[in-house]
Nucleic acid binder design. Structure first.
Lengths: 395, 395
DNA sequence: TCCATTAAACTCGTACTCCGAGCATAAGCC
DNA sequence: GGCTTATGCTCGGAGTACGAGTTTAATGGA
């Protein structure tokens, strides 16, 4: 359709700039009115008229009457066009995978959740591929990209290590092979951070830090809504900085990893219980037993390790806000005083008067899928991508 | 001149986009030819002709004949206009301060270095202010901004703590008060990182990590040439993440800071020598004594702590390249094997096959000043700033 | 020396987008 | 039913980028 071996022509400079700005705003504030878009982007009314007309003609947006608010001519709500583009957001987890189609406002359609029948990599990739085919069948040419969140370390479109799945290096590109669709791959913790920064607890923050505890700890630094993913996409592996005991070796290959101090494995060790097969469920179960004094002590140790590390990262990055996901939420809830003290003690003095708020994530389980959708939508609303879509729609 | 209480009119969207791109390229590659600019930015020859003519008319650029390279019509080198804008870059250090005027290509003119007569904050600020006045006298309306690098923790235009100067919170805005010039303040380690990322050892890297050891350790993560400075500009305080011994309290207020493990203070402790007044000079002196076995052991410990921490940060951020400044350079040089082993051992397994290169900084002592200049030039080449300059030049 | 070749700059006409000014429209309010 | 208010539409103008075609200034070989 678009790429056929020839060099794809870039859009003329600045040609679709305002259009991408409008679409980005709609993704961050679904249901925003046309008048509000004009105010936010400081567009003149004439420019607004023109850009919305253009986006409407290209089947990118529709306008529906907005509920009136006091005097004045009513405005409209800008919504994705029913024949507009979609991206397929997917999430690969230990137990199964999920998918949803996302429209330009980030709304997830056709959410599906499937358990793995087999955990063999080729079987899982085939299942994901079938999911892509099914979306392609449903949306046809409207489907422009596939964006995949993976619970593991990611590098470009390869999965480098996924301890929970027991996989080593895996090429994920078969998920889209022969479909011609671009595949975007991201770490699940990173993408849930993107979701928080775009539409969640960290919405509007210029610099946000997101941390999520499941098996080990993951997270990301997000600057102006974009994750600091590093040179190859493997950034955000905060679990593998040496905040812990240097004598302990981590499965990742390094020593003293923070990972080892803040999940179900750490709780089991403090409680002198055997290492659990599923550290996540084990931790959830332990957190139900906080009437037991040893459990409280173990939870306090883990929570303190969490809060101290967060404080160190706040010193390093000076975020506006910190968001917590996964087990970090119940851990803090179980020992709020310990958390608060360790957090404050770990901060540099000048931060203590007005430390960054540490908030629970708003998206929680859907975060990674929403973040994948957001990143996918970014990809299909670049100036070049819009120019391509426009070429196609005119024909 | 520009701001007089009224709202400054933003440039029309996209109006000066290409002009800013051209100027940014010239700052990153001084001496670049007009033809090379066109290739890099994928500008058509007609657009190039137009944009260069516009920049010439506005006294932003001049063209000088370029040395010919083979056949074809000769091109020109784009250089700052002799009546074009400049920024004043300044650097405040423990012993004194430096300044230089920077033209659009980042070349530093009139470099000056002055020792503090008094270290009282008001005396130092008055001296800096005098430096600004002197630049204003020399450059007049060509001087558009002042950009100040400070050896201390910075927050907006305040210095929060500067242990080496013995200062606490100081408002730096008197340096430009009543001049109407904007003041940009940055941490010196952050700004030297910017210099490396723009024109130094990390030039061209999308994600770079810069670390500099002087008294304690500072640094920054740089993404696409911009430092991750956080919400208030205090980002990059890598010295205050808890990679060290939790029992030790840092002057910053936190515990276990990495800072305490990798400078002259740490060397003195390992050597059972008294804490030095000037840890930097002390460390330099110690590094001359590596024939002594205890010195070699102490240097090895410090170098290992440095390398292990760097590896942790590489895990967290996945940079393309790491650059080292200050004492980190002779420390690594004194114990290269220790450094290499500790670095590799601290990396996650999948990084080890092809770990990010750790390079010595190319700018070293001039880094902070060059970085301050770069950030100041960014400020005066925004679309809005160029529109203002154009308005002024037409009159 | 002259001319073909090459790389780059210039000219011109066109397309696109943004904007200001003025006008039109659709609601609430009295 | 008119007045007020907020918003949308139309029109003409300005600024920028670009493609196509032309011109210019160098090299290098006959």
């Amino acid at each position: 359709m678009t790429a056929r071996g020839d060099v794809k022509p870039a859009a003329r400079r600045g040609q679709w700039q305002t259009a991408t700005d409008v679409l980005a705003l709609i993704a961050r504030q679904p249901g925003i009115t046309r008048a509000a878009v004009a105010r936010e982007l400081r567009l003149s009314t004439s420019s607004t008229t023109e850009v919305t007309a253009r986006l409407r003609d290209l089947h990118l947006l529709t306008e529906t009457p907005a509920p009136t608010q006091g005097r004045g001519r009513p405005t409209t709500v800008l919504r994705p066009h029913p024949r507009g583009p979609v991206v397929l957001a997917m999430e690969l987890r230990q137990a199964g995978w999920r998918s949803a189609a996302a429209t330009l406002d980030g709304v997830l359609l056709n959410q599906q959740s499937t358990r793995h029948r087999s955990r063999r990599p080729d079987a899982v990739l085939a299942a994901l591929r079938a999911g892509v085919d099914s979306a392609k069948a449903e949306y046809g040419d409207r489907l422009l990209a596939v964006s995949l969140a993976v619970a593991g370390t990611v590098r470009e479109d390869h999965l480098m290590q996924a301890p929970t799945l027991g996989w080593n290096t895996i090429d994920l590109s078969p998920v889209v092979a022969t479909t011609g669709l671009p595949l975007l791959v991201g770490n699940d913790a990173t993408l849930s951070g993107v979701a928080e920064a775009r539409t969640g607890a960290a919405a509007g923050a210029g610099t946000a830090l997101h941390l999520i505890v499941e098996v080990g700890i993951g997270g990301t630094l997000i600057i102006d809504g974009s994750p600091a993913s590093g040179a190859t996409g493997a950034g955000g592996e905060y679990g593998h900085i040496p905040f812990g005991d240097r004598r302990r070796t981590c499965p990742c290959g390094a020593r003293g990893c923070w990972d080892l101090e803040i999940d179900g494995r750490a709780l089991a060790e403090h409680l002198h219980e055997p290492q659990p097969d599923d550290p996540y469920s084990y931790a959830e179960a332990v957190l139900q037993r906080t009437t037991e004094a040893p459990v409280r002590r173990a939870v306090a140790k883990v929570t303190a390790a969490l809060a101290t590390g967060i404080a160190g990262l706040v010193n390093a990055h000076d975020p506006e806000v910190v968001t917590l996901g996964g087990l970090a939420v119940p851990l803090r809830a179980a020992a709020p005083t310990v958390f608060g003290t360790a957090y404050s003690d770990g901060l540099m003095t000048f931060h203590r008067a007005n430390p960054p708020a540490v908030l629970d994530s708003t998206h929680q389980q859907t975060g990674a899928l929403r973040g994948a959708a957001a990143v996918g939508l970014d990809e299909i609303t670049t100036e070049t991508a819009l120019a391509n879509w426009a070429d196609r729609t005119i024909l």
